[in-house]
Amino acid sequence: MTITFRSETFREDFTFRNSLYNIRRFPFPFDRDEYMYSVNMEPHVRARKDSVFENLIDVDEHYVAEMQDRAMVLKEDPLRCQALPHMMAAQWDTLELLMEHQAQDYPEHFTLEKNGDRWRWINRPMGIDDTFTFGDAATLPYPPMEYITRQAQGDFCIVDQRDNNLWMDAGMVTTQADWSLDFDIGMNFMEWHGPVPLAHQIGVFDRALKFLLNLQQGKPTRRLNWTMTVNPRLDTSPENYHKWGPDRTTVTPENVGQKMHLRVELQSLWRLPRSNAILFVIRCYLISLEELVTVPKWARRLPRVLASLPPEIVDYKGLTRNRPIMIDWLSKYDDGSPTSAGIYPD
């Protein structure tokens, strides 16, 4: 299927919108009417057509605009893309994985030709046609991870595995929910999750780490995470918090439907073949409340979930100020009927 890429912005005039088709395929993260942290991992396998799980590396109508936004972020702050020196093999692993998946699942848009180590990569939406030698970084215009992640939606972290732990040793992070790669690079799994409340105490990270240390090649895994963002802004980094923080005071009962967005991360984790590192893909999807309530099941469920949150999670996700406005507005769409199990629209 040929995707029609939208021309839109994630800053200043915020022209980002979802098409009707894209709304229906949004990865709504709540499979029931309440929420708590859990090790909610499942095999990352293809699921139903016209969902974001149709392909394992999802490309959608926002692809070109997201890549333009990433390029802008990197011009302002090159530290959003960093790799420690021992991660070069993992960088090539990442390039191979993303090129192969994009070319295989979107042949109208991407082509990968391999002739031994001589590879040709064609990215039609971005007008790229490069020939390079796999394994020789000097033949690419950027280091391999940066090269391919400037052409793939989502943030990317490559974590090294040693000493029975995982280490955040490389990443391209420009669409993050308020964490800093520059600060966290080099940290282990427990350290980079340090600021998350509650989950440490209930053992979520111990179990998740144990699980991930045993991740096998060819058997990626996934989970959904979520927060809320005012305006469809991809770059909600701590670096720029003083620039986007004031947005939170602009929400009113009149504009909450357009301004407030559910921000969902589809996190997928892949064992890499040469380096034995893990590629951690954090793909961000945004949907305004107005768009979301066009799906009646989601419109009923979201206010119930928001009302059920423990105060620590409300605080950590930055929802304190606007939660009551959201619940009030959304409750108009909740007639109290039961909701069906699972995340998909009825």
Binding site: S180, F183, D184, I185, G186, M187, E191, G194, P195, P238, Y241, H242, W244, G245, P246, R248, T249, R321
Partner: peptide, 22 residues
């Protein structure tokens, strides 16, 4: 001053406290 420490930087993280309402 957040309770988040980077060994690589040898420092805690400081985040603007009044970003939402300067």
């Amino acid at each position: 001053v957040r309770d988040h420490y980077s060994r690589r930087l040898g420092a805690f993280q400081g985040v603007n406290i009044d970003a939402e309402e300067p």
